[in-house]
């Protein structure tokens, strides 16, 4: 199945587009998405200081609520990746 991730903050280094498309096995959850992201970062962006992103980021559902690692993703679902924040 395919998931779309809206990119924010440092995660924007993962793509020139606003969203990143990730292919995952059916019935994957956020924990599995983290593993896929970790692999992607290690393979494609080893020098971009993104090593810890897959572990430190939160994810928001389309309702802008934090979703935990057990959250089951749906095909074509759009979620947001929320790297560690620091406004002000």
């Amino acid at each position: 199945m395919e998931i779309q991730i809206k990119l924010y903050g440092s995660s924007k280094m993962l793509s020139e587009n606003e969203t990143l498309h990730v292919e995952l096995p059916e019935n994957s959850n956020i924990g599995q998405l983290r593993n896929s992201l970790k692999k992607l970062i290690n393979e494609k962006y080893p020098k971009n200081n993104l090593n810890n992103l897959s572990n430190s980021a939160a994810f928001f559902s389309e309702k802008n609520e934090i979703i935990n690692d057990n959250y089951k993703l749906k095909n074509k679902e759009l979620i947001s990746i929320i790297p560690p924040i620091g406004g002000g």
Binding site: G9, S10, M13, N49, N55, S56, A57, A58, I66, N68, D69, I82, P83, P84, I85, G86
Partner: peptide, 12 residues
């Protein structure tokens, strides 16, 4: 990009 405060649930 500057580092910051993680919003990931602490137990995870």
């Amino acid at each position: 990009w500057l580092p910051g405060h993680s919003l990931r649930p602490k137990k995870e």
